[in-house]
Design a protein around this nucleic acid. Structure first.
Lengths: 194, 194, 194, 194
DNA sequence: CATGAATGAGATTTCATTCAT
DNA sequence: CATGAATGAAATCTCATTCAT
């Protein structure tokens, strides 16, 4: 019943940070709250002073990241008008973000099935919102005549796949720096629709 | 008290089939052997007359699928020579296979981290073998001058991403049939490198 | 993973017996499954080869006892006709049963609130059935003119209280033997309504 | 961050009141101090500015009620002399009190086993004191010749059972008002010993 | 080759209680 | 006198796995 350091918000932040890390490394089911507590430096039961449930933690992390993603995307596209320029900007943003926030992106993609139905619905809606950005750009390009697109939806998902794969292999300090990787992907994306 | 008509190989096949299904739906950690046993219609303990461990089952399923994938890929490319034709054939094969074997592909992609280090190494080597098919094609095309490619590796992974995303959204009976989806992806892939 | 003695029905019987004992001594909330497992001589988790949940065990014990009680009561009253004789028989049966099955009676009376709403409803209905035996006898006596009763329901519950209290203090081997205690209670009950 | 208007004794009173309520509804083990704190409108830790331990709270409530019970009983019997009149008065008092203080009575009867041995001994002694009132009356009546009693102790406990059962079923606003219920019980009690 | 009962470890979560602020 | 964060123990329950029958 020692109660030495009692620092609230710091602990919550640590739970979120370490939680993201462990979720990315082990997955939701394989990450035990014991592990998380140890990583944070508290007892397992003490986690519950900061989170409601393990599921709640997952949802917080995933939902929070998706909201950030959407906001950052909108900021990146702000003021850009032509379809080509917008696609360029979107692709660059997407790859850069996926390189920077690798862990969050990975968790957001791979742990969807661990979400409660209710939470899943919310997250799925947010993902849909994000994907709609790209779909809109492609449609605009098709209408403008600047893109040649067989099917807007299929192309959008294919492009997202093309731009997202980077998450699985990129490690900072490798052969190519992030700027080069971004440029390569932007190029591939643009060529595939023009 | 053994159920009449005890048939070994059939039971093992059922374990593999249902196991794949459950692994795809719930993930390795979330699939319990109790669930699997119930799906197969036997008692949990009886599973061990057919499998060594849960980990062994995962490895069998993933490794088996990868070997099939590689063999089928080689069969598809057999006799095709030009880089462009080979890429076309590869892309078509890859998408078709990913549509047909959705579950196996999904498990093979998402449960890698559940593999023990030893098993992981074997599987990673097999994946590398498969990816080498595409890398070779791209390099050949770059050498021939038929492809314009910034970086062969990056392009290969990006193309794999582009061609693989279909796993997450395609459902038979949807708006587009599989032939159309294949054609659309082949087109995108070719345009992105030419 | 030693698995020495594997005796099914014996273990379940032991769980029921020891469970009743511990429920009577500590109450539902205070009886832990660890305690029960230790009393039975197995690991806590092994209990779940025999019971569904702790709540299920409580329900089984309580419901089982109530069904026995009703059946034994009907057997005791079988063939007895006059209200006075029936009340005498009922009172004797009730006290004797409560002396013999002290633990089960105690659990059935004191752990009702630990039952799930659904289970509670079932148990309450069974209790109602039993109480109806006494109510019928009192009503018959009132109709026959052999009993003077102010209010049948109130009298029934008061008599049940009178006849049940024995559970809290009787210990075999005390100053009075069970036959004497039964006779004293029968006498009190009869006098209070005649 | 202390809520404005911090008033000590009021908080303690609230803890006692709500505590009694929750003890009656859920039982000692099932009532958590978190529940109690929420009912009172403070944080769990703050309870400890007013109580020593959970066990202490239980003991306070039970012992306090028993002392009140005894004092009120003595007041009710004060000045009444004949055994018959005293029994009548005792029975009326007992039923009325049990109707009025249902919750406290219920807790006092059902949570005895949750008391630590030391506290249990004190409470048991107080219960003995109360029961002695009835035993004395019965003995007096037997000596006077106004009661016919087989065994004083057994009769006393039986009568207490008869008069106490009301706790389990009486709800104000039911078919009978409390005066009627009291009268019915007094009548039953008197008839059973005369 | 199937069963059913067992194990031991571990999962998430709750709890009474403490104490610096 | 209240809060919020911590503790350490314990709760119910699940799991992969074993093995006598």
């Amino acid at each position: 019943m020692r109660t030495i350091g009692s620092n609230g918000p710091q602990t919550l932040a640590a739970i979120r940070t370490k939680g993201l890390e462990l979720l990315a490394r082990h997955g939701y089911e394989a990450m035990s709250l014991r592990m998380l507590a140890q990583a944070v430096g508290i007892q397992p039961g003490s986690l519950y002073n900061h989170i409601d449930t393990k599921q709640g933690l997952l949802f917080d992390v995933v939902e929070g990241h998706l909201r950030e993603l959407i906001a950052a995307c909108d900021a990146a596209l702000d003021g850009v008008t032509g379809a080509r320029a917008r696609l360029e900007r979107f692709a660059a943003f997407h790859v850069e973000h996926h390189i920077t926030r690798q862990e969050a992106v990975f968790v957001g993609n791979s742990e969807l099935r661990a979400l409660t139905p209710g939470n899943h619905a919310i997250v799925a809606a947010l993902r849909g919102e994000y994907e709609a950005r790209l779909i809109d750009i492609l449609r605009q390009g098709a209408d403008e005549g600047s893109f040649r697109i067989g099917d807007v939806s299929v192309t959008a998902y294919a492009l997202l796949g093309l731009l997202t794969g980077v998450v699985t292999w990129f490690r900072p300090g490798g052969r190519l720096d992030s700027a080069a990787v971004v440029a390569l992907h932007v190029d591939l994306a643009l060529r595939s629709v023009t």
